[in-house]
Computed example of a mutant assay.
Amino acid sequence: MKLSSRIKPISYLKANAAEIVRNLGERREPLVITQNGEAKVVIQDIESYEQTQETMAMLKILALGNRQIEGGRVRPLAEVVARLRERPESP
């Protein structure tokens, strides 16, 4: 995706909001909105936004796991499985 072709001034957004929303849903490409010549916001369709949020959540989980590994807060799998098997079952 070439972002430079997806940059529009805020006046374009104001004049073409319905068309922009329709295109965002069809193309699934973000649109950069400028104000006074500077990029100010990025708008995107809801599916792309949700996918981005899920990806960010997964990356945070992976980063947390890496920090735990680096901090030595890990246990061998066999030990964890043995502890789980020793637990009494809930009624």
Score class of each variant (00 low, 15 high):
1 M>F: 10
1 M>A: 04
1 M>C: 08
1 M>H: 11
2 K>R: 13
3 L>D: 02
3 L>E: 04
3 L>Q: 05
4 S>L: 12
6 R>Y: 11
7 I>P: 11
8 K>T: 00
9 P>L: 00
11 S>W: 03
12 Y>T: 09
14 K>F: 14
15 A>W: 06
16 N>Q: 05
17 A>G: 01
18 A>Q: 09
18 A>T: 05
19 E>N: 12
19 E>A: 07
20 I>L: 13
21 V>H: 01
21 V>A: 11
21 V>Y: 06
22 R>T: 09
22 R>H: 08
23 N>A: 12
24 L>G: 00
24 L>Y: 06
24 L>N: 02
25 G>W: 04
25 G>F: 12
26 E>H: 06
26 E>L: 00
28 R>Q: 11
28 R>G: 04
28 R>A: 02
29 E>C: 03
30 P>D: 06
30 P>V: 03
31 L>D: 04
31 L>Y: 12
33 I>P: 05
34 T>L: 02
34 T>V: 06
35 Q>Y: 14
35 Q>A: 15
36 N>C: 02
36 N>D: 10
37 G>I: 00
37 G>M: 03
37 G>F: 01
38 E>T: 02
39 A>D: 04
39 A>G: 08
39 A>I: 06
39 A>P: 07
40 K>R: 10
40 K>Q: 14
41 V>M: 07
41 V>Y: 09
41 V>F: 15
45 D>W: 07
46 I>Q: 08
46 I>P: 01
47 E>W: 01
47 E>F: 13
49 Y>V: 10
49 Y>W: 14
50 E>M: 12
50 E>L: 15
51 Q>F: 04
51 Q>Y: 02
52 T>A: 11
53 Q>F: 11
53 Q>N: 07
54 E>W: 09
54 E>P: 02
55 T>F: 13
55 T>L: 13
56 M>S: 11
56 M>D: 10
56 M>K: 05
56 M>A: 15
57 A>Y: 03
58 M>N: 05
58 M>C: 06
59 L>V: 05
60 K>F: 15
60 K>A: 15
60 K>P: 02
60 K>M: 15
61 I>Q: 11
61 I>N: 03
61 I>T: 07
62 L>A: 13
63 A>L: 13
64 L>E: 08
64 L>Y: 13
65 G>M: 07
65 G>P: 04
65 G>T: 09
65 G>C: 10
65 G>D: 10
66 N>T: 10
66 N>S: 10
69 I>D: 03
69 I>R: 07
69 I>E: 08
70 E>R: 13
70 E>T: 13
70 E>I: 14
70 E>Y: 11
72 G>F: 01
73 R>I: 03
74 V>N: 10
74 V>H: 03
76 P>Q: 14
77 L>P: 00
77 L>I: 14
79 E>Y: 08
79 E>T: 06
80 V>M: 09
81 V>H: 08
81 V>G: 09
81 V>I: 15
82 A>L: 03
84 L>Y: 08
84 L>G: 12
85 R>V: 04
85 R>H: 09
85 R>F: 02
85 R>W: 01
85 R>A: 05
86 E>L: 00
86 E>H: 14
86 E>M: 01
88 P>S: 09
89 E>M: 00
89 E>G: 05
89 E>Q: 11
89 E>K: 03
90 S>H: 11
91 P>N: 09
91 P>T: 05
